[in-house]
Design a protein around this nucleic acid. Sequence first.
DNA 1: CAGTCATTTCAGTAATTTCTGAAATGTAAG
DNA 2: CTTACATTTCAGAAATTACTGAAATGACTG
Lengths: 183, 183
Amino acid sequence: MTLTPLQQEFILHFGEMGSRWGINRTVGQIYALLFISSDPMNAETITTALSISRSNTSMGLKELQSWNLVRLRHIPGDRRDYFTTPDDMWEIVRTLIAERKKREIDPTLTKLRELELQGPAGDDYAEARIAELREMIEMMTGFYADMERLETERLVKLMTLGSRISGLIDKTAGMFPALTKRK
Amino acid sequence: MTLTPLQQEFILHFGEMGSRWGINRTVGQIYALLFISSDPMNAETITTALSISRSNTSMGLKELQSWNLVRLRHIPGDRRDYFTTPDDMWEIVRTLIAERKKREIDPTLTKLRELELQGPAGDDYAEARIAELREMIEMMTGFYADMERLETERLVKLMTLGSRISGLIDKTAGMFPALTKRK
DNA sequence: CAGTCATTTCAGTAATTTCTGAAATGTAAG
DNA sequence: CTTACATTTCAGAAATTACTGAAATGACTG
């Protein structure tokens, strides 16, 4: 397994970015390798391609599976596990956002609700800030949930609307009067 | 400086989440403390409130300043630096997204463009994947740039529109025929 | 069911990150 | 210019995270 210079550079970059993305270097590299490889790969191939230990590969793949970022494949007559990333880029992005939300936002939303349930703590400012933060997160996760339900086709349309979105939003003021009342 | 149980729990949670958010525990705690405190705080107060070292506070505040997440304030007759978080939650969210984009996405976008400029590397699949990834990132950052330009009022409207946006998007097909042609 | 191959687990080590205390630097006031 | 803080820097210690090799487990095959 030899990598082209292009693959090398791409993989090394993902490794370096890993820490910023909340994964470690090897996990980033494994993902990058699978992402730019047309065919599924087994653990042994990954191990030699990246010059890491077999056990490291195993743990990295486990991590990627926990993120739902890789697909397990099998080849007839070969009992090794093969891995790929989805072909569809939108599927990848959706998974990534969903998983990050699950790890980075949901626990905090839960905690904030918990704190509010504990009732007045005699600290009006803190309580108000916590409520405000919770409301903000709820609004954003609510919007995300709506977007998640849209088919890719419509999502693309929305994203490419650009500045025309502005006028569109205003038009809705008349269509849904209930929306115009803001606290 | 004594913290209420509510403050304590909130701060500890932010500390624990810190690593998932790409900051360390004390940076998370300092931010949390400032966020739920009505008045600006100086480094010494933060240090004792969180039971950390003065130097750690200094470094943490530097980090938060590099993220643009805190504001420096001064009190007449007091030459110490005081820190707060913005009152406006939307400002906080905008900053957070902008900074994460800068750290987590922009470097990769740059690298991908760089790789494409290096010309054909004789690996069609990898090249196609890299181009596809770049296009996806460009579409999303482009959309983000558009959203960033919207005033908060309109952004709130859009976010609360939610799935009702769907029908609206379809209507635009007639309004802007150019948009309907997708590759 | 014995042998072979694939994967996982795990204890120890290596590498990295975070934190501290002390010293250095900066800064305003007298 | 000196004193009195305030803040930053930085080398080493502490804590955490990542990685490896060896052993254990699992799973198919003949």
